[in-house]
Simulated assay, not measured.
Amino acid sequence: MSARFTPFEALEALVEKAGSQSALARALGVSQTAVWKWLQSSKRLPAEYVLKAEALYGVSRHDLRPDIYPRGYPPAPDARWTGVDRRAGASA
């Protein structure tokens, strides 16, 4: 069973799972005031904290930030991208 939340409901779920705004703030390395501001003004978790919050509390990234992590988007490949050096392999 997978509940789907709005971004604000997902943020509220994070606070509930953490136990308090202060506990969530400590876990994410921010101030309690920052968490309060997210709840009061932006109504969403900033992008840089989404993956850590998902790993810590199990609230889906798709619920926290559907604008960045839409459902049904293909997963990232297993291999990491290492960049392209167009000169690699060229004879000098």
Rank of each mutant, 00 (worst) to 15 (best):
R87Y: 02
P77L: 14
S42R: 15
Q40H: 11
R80K: 10
A79M: 14
L45G: 00
S60C: 02
R65K: 03
V30G: 04
A34C: 06
R26F: 13
Q40Y: 11
L11P: 04
D67Q: 06
V30Q: 08
A25L: 05
S31I: 06
A18I: 06
G29T: 10
Y49L: 00
E48I: 11
L11A: 07
Y57F: 13
T6K: 12
E16V: 12
A3F: 01
W38Y: 15
A13D: 01
A27D: 11
S42C: 01
D78C: 04
Y69M: 10
A27R: 02
K43L: 02
Q32K: 14
G58E: 11
A23G: 08
E16A: 14
L14V: 01
A10N: 01
A53G: 05
S20D: 00
R44G: 04
G19C: 05
P66G: 10
Y57S: 05
A53W: 09
Y49E: 01
V15A: 02
K17M: 03
R4C: 15
F5T: 00
R61I: 12
Q32Y: 12
D63S: 02
T82M: 13
P75Y: 06
A34N: 12
R65I: 07
S41F: 14
A10S: 02
F8D: 01
T82R: 14
D85P: 01
A53I: 01
A47C: 08
L51K: 06
P66L: 11
G58Q: 09
A76V: 11
L24T: 04
R86K: 07
A23V: 02
R80W: 04
K37Q: 14
A79L: 15
V59I: 09
S31G: 11
W36I: 02
P66H: 00
W38Q: 07
A34T: 13
L11W: 07
V50K: 01
M1T: 06
Y57W: 09
V30N: 02
G72Q: 10
G89A: 08
G83A: 10
E9M: 09
R4M: 12
P46G: 03
V59L: 04
